[in-house]
Nucleic acid binder design. Structure first.
Length: 307
DNA sequence: AAGACGAAAGTGGTTGA
DNA sequence: TCAACAACTTTCGTCTT
């Protein structure tokens, strides 16, 4: 659907469409081809329910997509967008006058919020799609009055965090916190609240998603990276990953993988980039060695490396 | 001296009555 | 709403390289 037929990376036509997540994934190389499949089943239904019959096809959902597409464009065009949006709303508040005040308030809020969102997003070097998704989530949150009683910034941060998770480019709460100067727990709270209220389903984040970023911070070879992922897969099977912090597991897997490939990093170094403590790495590391029988493999490699 | 290891106590969040 | 609980952190002493 949506006209994507081939993988941009390897040209394969072997694609997997995940409607729920709005993604197309190449089965051969794993590239996620983002398309504008803005299909949030649950939210749309919500709007259909409250928006009346006429708006069913062309109402609120269109606004999102227009808004969404416009996000990626230049500032000059942004004004048009807001006009469009208010134009769209005009129809609505002809019927209900009081809506006027709310919608202008929403627009004002949105302008500020999107500026903040952009700032944080560029600070974290997030992909455009994530930024747009976050904007969409934020827009919905505002329209549903979820910002009331919370600071705008914290909702922005929460929306960004959610968008990151949905796109499997996870940033830790710590990173979001640093970028937005909102407390970690506050972001977590609004994140949970917003996703619950909007009915956004988020897959539990996968430790493997962190590997690439951590590995490059540590300047580890690609080999080591894939070894770490391999270890992670085994760990999943042994149910070592459930309930534990994904970053800790990712860090431990990387640590082991680095040892095996003679690219030794100290626990401290790994712990720092992963944002966990050495103790956590040690615990995970111990579990990994025990449960996956990596001990002999590790010793063998190390003996080899000594010579 | 630096890193690895592990015990013990403390913190923040989840869960279930 | 509160207490029990698991995961994680902090701190610190000891062992290893």
């Amino acid at each position: 659907m949506y006209y994507v037929k081939k993988c941009a990376e390897c040209g394969s036509a072997n694609l997997f469409v995940n409607r729920e997540k709005g993604e197309i994934i190449c089965k051969d190389c794993g590239l996620v081809i983002e398309d504008r499949m803005v299909e949030f089943g649950q939210e749309w239904r919500e709007f259909e329910d409250s928006g009346g019959e006429k708006r069913r096809r062309t109402g609120a959902p269109m606004t999102y997509t227009q808004f969404d597409q416009g996000l990626g464009t230049e500032v000059g065009q942004k004004a048009d967008l807001f006009q469009l949006q208010s134009k769209d709303r005009n129809k609505f508040f002809r019927l209900r006058k009081w809506q006027y005040r709310i919608s202008t308030a929403i627009e004002r809020n949105l302008k500020l919020a999107l500026a903040e969102l952009k700032r944080v997003s560029s600070y974290l070097k997030l992909p455009k799609m994530v930024e747009e998704e976050a904007a969409m989530i934020y827009t919905q949150a505002v329209q549903r009055g979820l910002v009331r009683g919370r600071s705008m910034e914290s909702v922005v941060a929460g929306a960004l965090y959610a968008a990151c998770r949905r796109h499997e480019v996870p940033r830790t709460l710590d990173e979001l916190s640093e970028a937005s100067s909102i407390e970690k727990k506050e972001i977590g709270r609004t994140y949970r609240f917003v996703t619950r209220e909007l009915g956004i389903t988020i897959l539990p984040s996968n430790p493997a998603d962190y590997i690439a970023r951590f590995a490059s911070s540590l300047k580890l070879a690609a080999e080591t990276q894939s070894k770490a992922v391999e270890i992670l897969e085994k760990a999943q099977k042994e149910e070592l990953t459930s309930g534990r912090g994904p970053t800790g597991i990712a860090a431990a897997a990387l640590y082991v993988a680095a040892l095996m490939h003679g690219e030794k990093r100290t626990q401290r170094e790994v712990a720092d980039v992963a944002g966990v403590t050495e103790v956590t790495i040690r615990n995970r590391y111990k579990e990994l060695l025990e449960k996956l029988n990596l001990e002999k493999e590790l010793k063998k490699k190390q003996k080899l490396l000594k010579r």
